[in-house]
Protein backbone atom coordinates (compact mmCIF):
# COMPACT_ATOMS: atom_id res chain seq x y z
CA UNK A 1 0.00 0.00 0.00
CA UNK A 2 1.07 3.55 -0.56
CA UNK A 3 0.32 5.31 2.69
CA UNK A 4 0.34 9.09 3.04
CA UNK A 5 0.49 10.98 6.32
CA UNK A 6 -0.29 14.69 6.57
CA UNK A 7 1.49 16.42 9.42
CA UNK A 8 1.77 19.91 10.81
CA UNK A 9 4.54 21.38 12.92
CA UNK A 10 3.16 23.26 15.93
CA UNK A 11 4.58 24.94 19.04
CA UNK A 12 5.38 22.39 21.73
CA UNK A 13 2.15 21.98 23.70
CA UNK A 14 4.06 22.87 26.88
CA UNK A 15 4.94 26.30 25.41
CA UNK A 16 3.70 29.38 27.19
CA UNK A 17 2.26 31.22 24.17
CA UNK A 18 2.77 34.97 23.97
CA UNK A 19 1.20 37.32 21.45
CA UNK A 20 3.68 39.26 19.30
CA UNK A 21 3.94 42.96 20.10
CA UNK A 22 2.06 43.95 16.90
CA UNK A 23 -0.74 41.46 17.59
CA UNK A 24 -0.34 39.90 14.16
CA UNK A 25 0.70 36.49 15.39
CA UNK A 26 2.34 34.66 18.23
CA UNK A 27 5.80 35.63 19.43
CA UNK A 28 8.11 32.90 18.09
CA UNK A 29 10.96 33.70 20.52
CA UNK A 30 12.04 30.63 22.42
CA UNK A 31 9.33 28.41 20.96
CA UNK A 32 10.22 24.81 20.34
CA UNK A 33 8.28 23.33 17.44
CA UNK A 34 7.18 19.72 17.37
CA UNK A 35 5.01 17.39 15.31
CA UNK A 36 1.41 18.04 16.32
CA UNK A 37 0.52 15.24 18.78
CA UNK A 38 -2.48 13.99 16.75
CA UNK A 39 -0.26 13.85 13.68
CA UNK A 40 2.21 11.69 15.61
CA UNK A 41 -0.67 9.24 16.02
CA UNK A 42 -1.28 9.49 12.25
CA UNK A 43 2.38 8.68 11.54
CA UNK A 44 2.25 5.74 13.92
CA UNK A 45 -0.88 4.40 12.23
CA UNK A 46 0.83 4.74 8.86
CA UNK A 47 3.84 2.81 10.12
CA UNK A 48 1.72 0.11 11.74
CA UNK A 49 -0.29 -0.28 8.54
CA UNK A 50 2.91 -0.64 6.53
CA UNK A 51 4.27 -3.20 9.00
CA UNK A 52 1.07 -5.20 8.58
CA UNK A 53 0.50 -5.04 4.82
CA UNK A 54 3.78 -3.76 3.35
CA UNK A 55 4.30 -0.74 1.16
CA UNK A 56 5.68 2.68 1.90
CA UNK A 57 4.86 5.63 4.12
CA UNK A 58 5.20 9.18 2.82
CA UNK A 59 5.05 12.12 5.24
CA UNK A 60 3.74 15.37 3.75
CA UNK A 61 3.80 18.79 5.38
CA UNK A 62 3.12 22.34 4.30
CA UNK A 63 4.86 25.06 6.27
CA UNK A 64 8.02 27.12 6.64
CA UNK A 65 11.51 25.67 6.31
CA UNK A 66 11.59 24.75 9.98
CA UNK A 67 8.97 22.07 9.45
CA UNK A 68 11.57 19.94 7.67
CA UNK A 69 12.52 18.91 11.22
CA UNK A 70 8.97 17.60 11.73
CA UNK A 71 9.17 15.62 8.48
CA UNK A 72 12.58 14.22 9.52
CA UNK A 73 11.01 13.17 12.80
CA UNK A 74 8.49 11.15 10.81
CA UNK A 75 11.30 9.66 8.73
CA UNK A 76 13.23 8.88 11.92
CA UNK A 77 10.16 7.12 13.31
CA UNK A 78 10.28 4.91 10.21
CA UNK A 79 8.55 6.63 7.29
CA UNK A 80 10.19 6.17 3.90
CA UNK A 81 9.89 9.51 2.14
CA UNK A 82 9.05 13.10 2.87
CA UNK A 83 7.46 15.90 0.89
CA UNK A 84 7.88 19.44 2.16
CA UNK A 85 5.77 22.19 0.61
CA UNK A 86 7.50 25.43 1.51
CA UNK A 87 4.90 28.12 2.18
CA UNK A 88 7.33 31.05 1.75
CA UNK A 89 5.50 34.06 0.32
CA UNK A 90 2.04 32.49 0.59
CA UNK A 91 -0.44 33.32 3.33
CA UNK A 92 -2.48 30.18 3.96
CA UNK A 93 -5.62 29.30 5.84
CA UNK A 94 -7.15 25.84 6.18
CA UNK A 95 -8.78 26.14 2.76
CA UNK A 96 -5.67 27.12 0.84
CA UNK A 97 -3.55 24.60 2.76
CA UNK A 98 -5.98 21.85 1.77
CA UNK A 99 -6.09 23.09 -1.87
CA UNK A 100 -2.29 23.04 -2.15
CA UNK A 101 -1.98 19.69 -0.38
CA UNK A 102 -4.66 18.15 -2.60
CA UNK A 103 -2.88 19.34 -5.75
CA UNK A 104 0.24 17.47 -4.60
CA UNK A 105 -1.56 14.43 -3.21
CA UNK A 106 -3.60 13.72 -6.34
CA UNK A 107 -0.37 12.98 -8.22
CA UNK A 108 0.92 10.60 -5.56
CA UNK A 109 -1.71 7.82 -5.91
CA UNK A 110 -2.04 7.09 -2.23
CA UNK A 111 -4.20 4.18 -1.11
CA UNK A 112 -4.93 5.81 2.23
CA UNK A 113 -4.20 9.12 3.94
CA UNK A 114 -3.82 9.50 7.68
CA UNK A 115 -4.04 12.89 9.35
CA UNK A 116 -4.48 14.09 12.94
CA UNK A 117 -8.11 14.95 13.75
CA UNK A 118 -6.95 18.53 14.31
CA UNK A 119 -3.69 20.44 14.76
CA UNK A 120 -2.71 21.26 18.31
CA UNK A 121 -2.14 24.96 17.54
CA UNK A 122 -5.26 26.30 15.79
CA UNK A 123 -7.54 23.33 16.50
CA UNK A 124 -9.46 23.96 13.26
CA UNK A 125 -9.92 20.30 12.27
CA UNK A 126 -10.53 21.42 8.70
CA UNK A 127 -7.57 20.46 6.52
CA UNK A 128 -8.13 16.69 6.57
CA UNK A 129 -11.83 16.91 5.65
CA UNK A 130 -11.20 19.54 2.95
CA UNK A 131 -8.41 17.48 1.41
CA UNK A 132 -10.81 14.53 1.20
CA UNK A 133 -13.40 16.76 -0.44
CA UNK A 134 -10.97 18.15 -3.03
CA UNK A 135 -9.70 14.66 -3.84
CA UNK A 136 -13.27 13.34 -4.03
CA UNK A 137 -12.49 10.66 -1.44
CA UNK A 138 -14.54 9.44 1.51
CA UNK A 139 -13.38 10.53 4.93
CA UNK A 140 -13.89 9.51 8.52
CA UNK A 141 -12.82 11.81 11.34
CA UNK A 142 -12.10 11.32 15.05
CA UNK A 143 -11.12 7.73 14.37
CA UNK A 144 -10.14 5.58 17.32
CA UNK A 145 -9.95 2.23 15.59
CA UNK A 146 -9.31 1.07 12.06
CA UNK A 147 -9.31 -2.41 10.54
CA UNK A 148 -8.40 -2.91 6.88
CA UNK A 149 -10.29 -5.60 5.00
CA UNK A 150 -8.54 -8.61 3.45
CA UNK A 151 -8.49 -7.15 -0.04
CA UNK A 152 -7.19 -3.78 1.25
CA UNK A 153 -10.01 -2.18 -0.70
CA UNK A 154 -11.72 -0.77 2.36
CA UNK A 155 -11.72 -0.57 6.11
CA UNK A 156 -14.00 -0.78 9.10
CA UNK A 157 -13.50 2.36 11.12
CA UNK A 158 -14.76 3.42 14.57
CA UNK A 159 -15.46 7.11 15.03
CA UNK A 160 -15.78 8.57 18.52
CA UNK A 161 -18.87 10.70 18.93
CA UNK A 162 -18.72 11.52 22.62
CA UNK A 163 -20.54 10.19 25.63
CA UNK A 164 -18.80 6.85 25.14
CA UNK A 165 -20.69 6.23 21.90
CA UNK A 166 -19.09 5.44 18.59
CA UNK A 167 -20.15 5.20 14.98
CA UNK A 168 -18.87 2.32 12.88
CA UNK A 169 -18.23 3.01 9.21
CA UNK A 170 -17.43 0.70 6.36
CA UNK A 171 -15.31 2.95 4.17
CA UNK A 172 -13.85 2.23 0.74
CA UNK A 173 -10.28 3.19 -0.07
CA UNK A 174 -8.66 5.50 -0.91
CA UNK A 175 -9.94 7.54 2.00
CA UNK A 176 -8.84 10.19 4.45
CA UNK A 177 -8.72 8.95 8.04
CA UNK A 178 -8.45 11.68 10.70
CA UNK A 179 -7.16 10.04 13.85
CA UNK A 180 -8.03 10.53 17.51
CA UNK A 181 -6.07 9.88 20.71
CA UNK A 182 -6.20 6.30 21.89
CA UNK A 183 -5.86 4.82 18.41
CA UNK A 184 -2.24 3.90 19.13
CA UNK A 185 0.79 4.88 21.14
CA UNK A 186 3.23 6.72 18.84
CA UNK A 187 6.77 5.38 18.93
CA UNK A 188 9.69 7.70 19.58
CA UNK A 189 12.30 8.46 16.95
CA UNK A 190 15.22 6.28 18.06
CA UNK A 191 18.76 7.50 17.51
CA UNK A 192 19.50 4.79 14.91
CA UNK A 193 16.27 5.88 13.21
CA UNK A 194 17.36 9.53 13.31
CA UNK A 195 20.69 8.62 11.69
CA UNK A 196 18.96 6.60 8.96
CA UNK A 197 16.50 9.43 8.31
CA UNK A 198 19.34 11.71 7.23
CA UNK A 199 19.67 9.84 3.94
CA UNK A 200 15.98 9.24 3.23
CA UNK A 201 14.52 11.13 0.26
CA UNK A 202 12.85 14.44 1.01
CA UNK A 203 11.33 16.41 -1.84
CA UNK A 204 10.80 20.14 -1.52
CA UNK A 205 8.04 21.91 -3.45
CA UNK A 206 7.05 25.56 -3.39
CA UNK A 207 3.54 26.49 -2.30
CA UNK A 208 3.79 29.59 -4.49
CA UNK A 209 3.96 27.31 -7.58
CA UNK A 210 0.90 25.35 -6.49
CA UNK A 211 -1.70 27.94 -5.46
CA UNK A 212 -3.22 28.00 -8.95
CA UNK A 213 -4.82 31.42 -8.53
CA UNK A 214 -6.47 30.47 -5.24
CA UNK A 215 -6.34 32.68 -2.15
CA UNK A 216 -6.88 32.18 1.54
CA UNK A 217 -10.50 32.81 2.44
CA UNK A 218 -9.95 33.61 6.07
CA UNK A 219 -7.90 36.58 7.14
CA UNK A 220 -6.71 36.75 10.72
CA UNK A 221 -6.80 40.39 11.72
CA UNK A 222 -5.30 40.04 15.17
CA UNK A 223 -4.52 37.62 17.97
CA UNK A 224 -5.63 37.89 21.58
CA UNK A 225 -5.02 35.70 24.62
CA UNK A 226 -8.10 34.25 26.30
CA UNK A 227 -9.13 36.07 29.47
CA UNK A 228 -7.48 34.78 32.61
CA UNK A 229 -9.49 32.25 34.49
CA UNK A 230 -11.14 33.84 37.52
CA UNK A 231 -10.42 32.34 40.90
CA UNK A 232 -12.53 29.40 42.03
CA UNK A 233 -15.31 29.97 44.53
CA UNK A 234 -16.12 27.81 47.53
CA UNK A 235 -19.70 27.66 48.73
CA UNK A 236 -19.95 27.32 52.49
CA UNK A 237 -22.84 26.05 54.55
CA UNK A 238 -25.13 23.05 54.86
CA UNK A 239 -25.79 20.87 51.84
CA UNK A 240 -29.47 21.83 51.71
CA UNK A 241 -28.61 25.47 51.14
CA UNK A 242 -25.43 25.01 49.12
CA UNK A 243 -26.70 22.56 46.52
CA UNK A 244 -29.54 24.74 45.13
CA UNK A 245 -27.11 27.66 45.04
CA UNK A 246 -24.54 25.53 43.19
CA UNK A 247 -27.17 24.44 40.68
CA UNK A 248 -28.23 28.05 40.19
CA UNK A 249 -24.63 29.16 39.59
CA UNK A 250 -23.91 26.33 37.18
CA UNK A 251 -27.06 27.21 35.25
CA UNK A 252 -27.04 30.97 35.32
CA UNK A 253 -23.39 31.96 35.63
CA UNK A 254 -21.32 29.10 34.25
CA UNK A 255 -24.12 28.10 31.86
CA UNK A 256 -22.97 24.49 31.82
CA UNK A 257 -26.28 22.85 32.76
Amino acid sequence: MKIGVLIKQVPDTATNIKIAANGAGIDPTGIKYVVSPYDEIAIEEGLKTKEKVGGEVVVVSLGPVRCVEAIRTGLAMGADKGIHIDDAGVVVDSYLTARILASVLEKENFDILFVGKQAADNDCAQVGPMVAEFLGWPQVTVVEKIELNEARSGAVVARRVGGGAKEIYDVSLPAVIAVEKGLNNPRYASLPGIMKAKSKPLTTLKAADLVGGEKARVEVTHYRLPPERPEGRILKGEAEQVVPELVRLLREEAKVI
Binding site: E69, R72, K198
Partner: peptide
Protein backbone atom coordinates in the same frame (compact mmCIF):
# COMPACT_ATOMS: atom_id res chain seq x y z
CA UNK B 1 21.56 20.05 14.23
CA UNK B 2 18.08 18.90 13.29
CA UNK B 3 19.06 15.33 14.24
CA UNK B 4 20.18 16.45 17.70
CA UNK B 5 16.90 18.28 18.23
CA UNK B 6 14.81 15.28 17.21
CA UNK B 7 16.84 13.12 19.59
CA UNK B 8 16.36 15.73 22.31
CA UNK B 9 12.59 15.40 21.96
CA UNK B 10 12.82 11.61 22.07
CA UNK B 11 14.90 11.57 25.25
CA UNK B 12 12.78 14.26 26.90
CA UNK B 13 9.57 12.34 26.17
CA UNK B 14 11.16 9.13 27.43
CA UNK B 15 12.30 10.80 30.66
Amino acid sequence: TEGHEIFRKTVRDFA
